[in-house]
Computed example of a mutant assay.
Amino acid sequence: MAKRSRSKTRTPASDAAEGAVGPRQPCPCGSGRRYKHCHGAADGGAQVYVARPFEGLPGERDIVALRELVPAASAPLTLKDHPDREVLLCTLLPGAAPAMVRDSGAIWLGLQVQHSFGDPARDLGAVLLKALDAEAGIVGLTDPPGPGPRLQDLVVSGGNGDGLDITVHDGFGFWIADVEEQTPEMEEALHQADHSAAPTARLGSVEAAYWTDVTTKEHLRWVLPEPEADAFDALARLHAAGRDQLVPDSRLVGMFRAHGLLVPVWDLPVGTGAAALEEPAAAFRKALDEALAVTEPLTPEERSARNGLANRQVTIR
């Protein structure tokens, strides 16, 4: 009797949805567990994973950057139902706290937290609602928040009435700027936090592009708004044409995906600085727009460039 074939019908990789996560791959939520044991669990024990959680928020790309790239920055928010309540969105709070209610009643929301409940925007919404009713101190979540308003549902705009009015700080001194009596413990925590913060600056000529100095080299990391496939094609066209260099001796070294958006990364020569990138970044944005407008299929050289860029891509969350 002939043996049965052990092979099973499988869905070709080309038919899989772009960005789909396999059951044995790491869960994109950042928990460190396999997808099938986390947000892909059959028992529904975790919340549904949201691939682009900050979509619809003013300054979505900057929020992604502040969550993933920028050590010390802040931006005021205006709330729908509490327009007079002071709310400050921060990259990081002391002890990586999700939120703090200050003695003044101001609410500080932290973006760089360890929640892995699937939807950071829902986490922020839940923490904000708790903070609105809390006394001065730390506010956070110990369990998944369940259904409810996301930050998009609670925010009218950034503090300037449009996008986010972002301040990139030299360090974390803003943590205790409103504290009259500063203890040695506060100063030690501030010193440790400042020591780990690489100098960072937000470019003014383009949106959501951040220069940073990591001592041995400098980087530009730029959160793009376009759909991933379109951005990849446009970057591949420019890469194949040798038009992806920002300044002499700079190099597009790869990119990563963060919260549903593509973030190309350039290595820059030490000593470049942020100011030297303003005009080149604006020129590159124009070239990228031109490449995005091209409708012809990629050439063999451009497809090769695209594959090379894809091989240097990682997913942050």
Score class of each variant (00 low, 15 high):
residue 208 A to G: 03
residue 196 S to H: 15
residue 199 P to M: 10
residue 197 A to D: 07
residue 256 F to S: 06
residue 211 W to K: 02
residue 190 L to R: 11
residue 236 A to P: 08
residue 185 E to I: 13
residue 194 D to L: 03
residue 235 L to A: 02
residue 254 G to N: 10
residue 253 V to Y: 15
residue 206 V to Y: 08
residue 211 W to P: 03
residue 242 G to S: 05
residue 250 S to Q: 03
residue 193 A to I: 12
residue 166 I to E: 01
residue 238 L to I: 04
residue 194 D to Y: 01
residue 216 T to G: 13
residue 184 P to N: 11
residue 211 W to D: 00
residue 248 P to K: 10
residue 244 D to K: 00
residue 246 L to T: 00
residue 185 E to N: 07
residue 175 W to N: 02
residue 238 L to P: 02
residue 235 L to E: 00
residue 204 G to R: 11
residue 178 D to F: 15
residue 163 G to I: 06
residue 243 R to E: 12
residue 165 D to Y: 04
residue 193 A to K: 04
residue 176 I to T: 13
residue 181 E to A: 14
residue 230 D to G: 09
residue 173 G to R: 10
residue 225 P to V: 09
residue 198 A to H: 15
residue 166 I to H: 02
residue 184 P to H: 11
residue 205 S to V: 07
residue 254 G to V: 11
residue 197 A to R: 03
residue 240 A to K: 05
residue 254 G to H: 06
residue 235 L to P: 01
residue 213 D to K: 08
residue 181 E to K: 13
residue 177 A to L: 08
residue 194 D to E: 02
residue 173 G to K: 06
residue 221 R to S: 10
residue 229 A to M: 14
residue 245 Q to C: 08
residue 229 A to I: 13
residue 256 F to L: 04
residue 165 D to E: 15
residue 165 D to W: 03
residue 246 L to M: 03
residue 165 D to K: 02
residue 177 A to K: 04
residue 204 G to H: 12
residue 239 H to C: 08
residue 210 Y to D: 00
residue 189 A to S: 13
residue 247 V to D: 02
residue 168 V to F: 01
residue 215 T to S: 15
residue 240 A to Y: 09
residue 164 L to V: 09
residue 197 A to G: 10
residue 252 L to I: 04
residue 161 G to V: 08
residue 202 R to E: 11
residue 256 F to D: 08
residue 252 L to A: 09
residue 207 E to W: 08
residue 227 P to W: 05
residue 166 I to R: 01
residue 167 T to Q: 11
residue 201 A to Y: 05
residue 229 A to L: 14
residue 213 D to C: 09
residue 195 H to T: 13
residue 187 E to I: 07
residue 170 D to A: 07
residue 159 G to V: 12
residue 161 G to R: 14
residue 203 L to R: 04
residue 238 L to M: 07
residue 235 L to R: 06
residue 199 P to D: 02
residue 236 A to I: 09
residue 227 P to K: 04
residue 186 M to H: 07
residue 184 P to F: 09
residue 243 R to K: 15
residue 171 G to V: 06
residue 249 D to S: 09
residue 184 P to T: 10
residue 189 A to K: 11
residue 213 D to E: 09
residue 253 V to Q: 15
